[in-house]
Nucleic acid binder design. Sequence first.
DNA 1: ATAACAAGTGCATTATATTGCACTTATCCC
DNA 2: GGGATAAGTGCAATATAATGCACTTGTTAT
Lengths: 192, 192
Amino acid sequence: MSNGSLEVMQNVSANLRLARQQQGYSQERLAELAGISRRMLVNIEAGESNASIATVDKLASALGMSFAEVVRPPPLADKELGLPLRIWQGVQDDSHGSLLESVLKPGMTLELWRWQLAAGDSYHAEADAPGCHEVLYMLDGQLELLLPQQQQRHVLQAGQSLTFALDQVYSYHNPGLVVCAFTKSILMYPHA
Amino acid sequence: MSNGSLEVMQNVSANLRLARQQQGYSQERLAELAGISRRMLVNIEAGESNASIATVDKLASALGMSFAEVVRPPPLADKELGLPLRIWQGVQDDSHGSLLESVLKPGMTLELWRWQLAAGDSYHAEADAPGCHEVLYMLDGQLELLLPQQQQRHVLQAGQSLTFALDQVYSYHNPGLVVCAFTKSILMYPHA
DNA sequence: ATAACAAGTGCATTATATTGCACTTATCCC
DNA sequence: GGGATAAGTGCAATATAATGCACTTGTTAT
């Protein structure tokens, strides 16, 4: 039992219920997928249970989420496309649900972009000037980064970040089934 | 019981043991501080127990850590596969529903943070060194930024961004009814 | 050598997470 | 109306997390 006062469990119940509803599962179906009883899921969603790590992990997996995602404080609710954005520079939009926009005025030593790539979408970029570095921070979903010159391929998850030099070709790809979102910072001055 | 195969519990045991030793606590002392039995702590550190959320949370608190910190993969996950490329799993620090997460390793000329402020929560900061600039980009909710030295007050909405110099006091406040989230970039110019 | 402390083990006991089932309530559809 | 699905409740039964204690092992210090 245990009262629902534990903050972490409150996060768990809120996140689970939201994710379950967004994916269109009933409690019974999700419990079945996770391999736990529906009774337990009811308790967890109601915040009336102090679940074990394993139980929460089963539910996270069944929903395609990481444990950290389920445990973290309230979700970035309206993740879907079309949230109000103030745009400083032109928007390049490639029709099927992807979105590229510059968050900052151009001409600074820092560029800041917010990107969304639709499921399955890709983007290829040529090499930029030496001394430029990119900082990528995943907000939602998954992103696959390809660096052919280094024969490297990385899959980034929400919450992870990655830094690399921009004097090489690279390409993005969204391997997931849902739209992914990330911020892309470009540092313009030379740096060790 | 449960075998020690669950990845999250492996993280928990490794992180707890490391933090406990770094802070110079014996198992008995930590168990006492956390309000759990020493036997349980032994099991958890040995990875032989599928602990409950509440138990892990008690231990995290006793060590001055956040739940997320205890659950995250060990810091060695700092995988440096290729030299110019770094993946970094953010370090979180959440208290009473707000969340401050360092997205990048410290020590770069660019810092990148992800913040969440609980509804009604505030944060006050003293003046930083000249030459530092902040770029704030709202992801969700509302944020009120106060710059008392300039007698300015700005309310930012999701999608908006704002830049200001850090050589002055400033404070954040979440005036909304829901949690707000934003990224906070700090640019550190070597000079000027 | 003895004492003292920290860490690990085995096991019976207790507390509680988890299950299963029967039931209610509400909504939607034919 | 009746039938179907989804969500929530109460309660006994079971599995297991969590406790307490006695014990071993290893280390350090006097």
